[in-house]
Amino acid sequence: MILWLTVALLIAAVLLCLYRVARGPSLPDRVVGLDLLSSVTVGFIAVYAVISGEIIYIDVATVLALIAFLGTVAFAYFIEKGGMPWRKT
């Protein structure tokens, strides 16, 4: 029962992150939203592994944590090297 409450909390967290990704006034705001979204997804996969009883999903969480770090670092490098100079805000 408490696991379904956990799932509800994580879905609410995903919706709040999507709100920030859609709303964020600048590119780094959206990247912060995407980074937190990937962390929430890693937690979600772990909770689903507990619910379904399959250990193999923990490996999926490992791979997703790796890929999320690479994505955030790539976005940070892109922003530091100039970002999108055609969009002056």
Binding site: I2, L3, L5, T6, L9, L10, A12, A13, V14, L16, C17, Y19, R20, S26, P28, D29, V32, G33, L36, S39, V40, G43, A46, V47, V50
Partner: peptide, 26 residues
Amino acid sequence: LIFLGALFMFIAALGVARMPDLFTRM
């Protein structure tokens, strides 16, 4: 433990959605 973790994640997402500034959001 799982419920506490989900609660912390919800608080993090709430801060990302509600904080006024990029650095406070981070």
